[in-house]
Structure formats: C-alpha cells, structure tokens
Design a protein around this nucleic acid. Structure first.
Lengths: 209, 209
DNA sequence: TGACAATGAATGAACGTTCATTCATTGTCT
DNA sequence: AGACAATGAATGAACGTTCATTCATTGTCA
C-alpha cells in the first residue's frame, strides 16, 4: 500500500506532466485548458487538482522537470572523452531525442513565460548558469582548447556556445514538421562542428589551402 | 480633408499596434485581452474591430510590422563601411533601441506562436531567409572575410551569426528589468565582437601572446 | 451665411462561449 | 465499514466579439 502510494503518486504526477508537455507544445501554456491535459492523460479534470494546486503549479513542475533533465544532460556531457563530443551531446540532447519539435516548442514557450513570470525566469536563469559553469569548466580543462583560445576566455566561449544552442532551438520551431528527428539531429551536429572548428580548431591546416 | 483621412486611418492602426506591442510584451499574445489593448491605446474595444478583423489579425499585423522593421535594419547594415559595423547594427538593432525588453519578449513570443501557427511561421521564416541571404552576401563581398574563412562558407557563417543573435535575444528576456538599455547594448556589442574575432580575425596577433 | 441632412468614427453594455476551479458523488480497495 | 482515488457536472469569472446608439464633422440646400 505504502509502496503503491509512494510509487503511484509520483507516477500520476509524471503521467500528468507527460500529457501537459504534449499539450503545451501543441497549443502553448495559456491556450491549453485543464480539460485538454486531462483528456491527453486519460483521466478526469478533477484528478489533476489532487496532484497539483492549480495550472500555474503544473507549469512550474514542468519547468522543474526541465531543470533536472538539463542537469542530467550536463552530467553526460561532462563524461564524454573529448570536448567536441561534449558539445555534441549538449547540442543534440534536448532538441533531437524522441520528440524533437515537442521539446523545442516547450522550451521557447518556457522562455516566453520567463519574460513575465519572475519565478520561472529565476528557475531558467539558474539552469542556464549551472550549465554554463559546467561548460566553462569543461573548456578550461580540455586539452583541445589550450593553445587555440583566439583571445577568448573559457566563459566567453561558453557564452557563445550557449547562445548558438538557444538560437538553433528557436530555429527548430520554424521548421516544418516533415523534417524527421534524424534530419534535425544531423543539422544540429553540422552546426556544432562548425562552431567547434571556429572556436577550437588549430589554424595549421589552412596552410594546405 | 482627404489628407486628414488618409493620415488618420493608418495612424489609428499604428496606435493600436503600438498599444498591442506593449500589452503583448507584458502579458503575451494569449493572455492579452482586447480590453487590455483598448485601455493601453486609450480607445474603446469596439474601435479595434473597425481596423482589425479579429485578434488574430492584430497578431498578424504585428508580425508584418516586425518584418518591415527587420528589412530596414538589414538595409542600414548593408550600408555600413565595415563588416564588423554591419554585424553590430544587426545585433543591437531590435533588442537595444528604445524599449529593449519589450521587443525581445515580443520576438520570443512570435517564435512561440510560429511553432503552432503556420501562417506566422511562414512569415518569420521568410524574414529570416531574407536577412540571412543579405548577410551571406555581405560576408562574400567583405574584404575582411577573404583570407580568414576557417573552412566555413559565407552562408555557414551567416547561420552561426543568426543563431547567436537569436540566442542572445532569448537571454534578454531572462535578464532582470533593472538592466538599462545601454547596459544591454554594451553586452550585445561585447558578444558581437567576440563572435567577430572568432569568425574573421586573422590569427597573426596570437604571436604576441 | 444659416439650417438641415447625412456620415461614419467611436462607444461600451450585452451575448455566447470557454475556462479554471470546486465538490458532491461514485468506485475500489482493505 | 472506512479510507482513499477518481469522476464530471456545476459555478462564476473572463474573454472575444457584436451592435444599437451617440455625436462631431462634412455636404447640401436656401
């Protein structure tokens, strides 16, 4: 029983959040009704209010979940053998896995929400600062970046890297749905490698040109 | 008489769109009511419907106006004497003039809307393609970029530049309102110069280090 | 010029609908 | 039976939109 409870309560929450993600990505936070979420989750409206205080709380919980997912991606990226591979993990993680356009639309909406909800803004800013600190450290320690700094500090590089990542995410929501997850992933990898070569590649090989 | 008419009709539309921009930036498209817009514009609700078919039409008109503004920025950027100055104009234009956070929030919302409104998506994509073509041409012709391509084509460089611009715009909505327009502008310029040095600066000077 | 008719910009109360939220009720376990 | 999970009809506030009405301005007579 207590096992069922401790299992099923988070499960219900998770089920509701999964449904909410689909709805939010499809219609946006404020065009999604609680009935939409309940229908997507296959439960009744009232039940949502057993697990979340109100709609705002659902949005906050989604933002929290996003924070945890980014942390996990950062952990994976830190364990990659090379800096390039770390960057590839960071760039392709949140926008190219199972349901690419869904997540991208959600994240853009999250920023949109952050612009007028200080609580969400703080949370997103926190995620960003943690992730950027991680990447800055990654760059500082990477042998690839030792003699190719181009006058930029590791944290300045990290800032550029994250700007590009966010910018590509925005581009993602403009792309027609016909594009498959694999195509999106390839595109992201291309851009990652270009940025990498631009930031870290030694100049030597231009002698061959 | 006829002069007054042809002047005042576009003025009303403009007045409504100005008010809508403030409201949309403050609350987002779908949390802004027609009453909010009418109150901000200092007119009655009904009057909005004399100039716009419905709320959707107001959003579309705002997107159209944004398109024109970007075109103008592009024209100005094209006339700058150096590539760096062109980039500085592009990077600081829409997010650092009079009402920086207002415009940034609006643009993020526009992308968010684009993810579920194909009409808006087409329009935004069009703006982006035009602007990127312009910058690609700018790079192709710039003497600064002739011997420092780092293995990237002009259009690949343009893509990186626009990704960074969009990414910085997203960052803008996270920043506390206490930041002044000038501070924002300085920040943008810093990043622009870093990106520029990373893409176009010759390596020579690293010999001094 | 002065009196009157016509216009259409502007108003805001009212309408139908949608939505978040509540809660009395029902189902399902032990 | 008792406790808890789940339902979905009911509620009232808020929304987009409409439209009967007002009134300053313009046009047209004498």
């Amino acid at each position: 029983m207590s096992q069922l409870q401790t299992d099923s309560v988070p499960d219900r929450r998770c089920q509701i959040l999964d449904a909410a993600l689909v709805c939010f990505a499809k219609r946006g936070f404020h065009q999604t009704s609680m009935h939409d979420i309940s229908a997507e989750a296959g439960i009744s409206v009232g039940l949502i209010y057993r697990y979340f205080e109100n709609k705002e709380a659902v949005i906050s919980a989604m933002a929290d979940r996003h924070k945890k997912e980014i942390s996990e991606v950062l952990q994976r990226a830190k364990q990659a053998p090379t800096l390039l591979e770390s960057l590839e993990i960071l760039f392709t993680a949140h926008c190219c896995e199972e349901q690419s356009p869904v997540v991208s639309a959600f994240v853009v909406d999250l920023y949109s929400e952050a612009s007028r909800n200080p609580q969400v803004a703080d949370l997103v800013r926190g995620v960003l600062e943690t992730a950027m600190a991680g990447v800055t450290e990654l760059i500082s320690k990477a042998p690839e970046a030792q003699n190719t700094t181009r006058g930029l500090s590791p944290s300045e590089m990290a800032e550029l890297i994250f700007a590009v990542a966010r910018g590509m995410l925005m581009l993602d929501v403009l792309r027609p749905q016909e594009m498959t997850a694999t195509e999106r992933r390839d595109r992201q990898l291309q851009v990652t490698r270009r940025l990498w070569s631009c930031l870290f590649k030694p100049e030597a090989e231009f002698a061959y040109a």
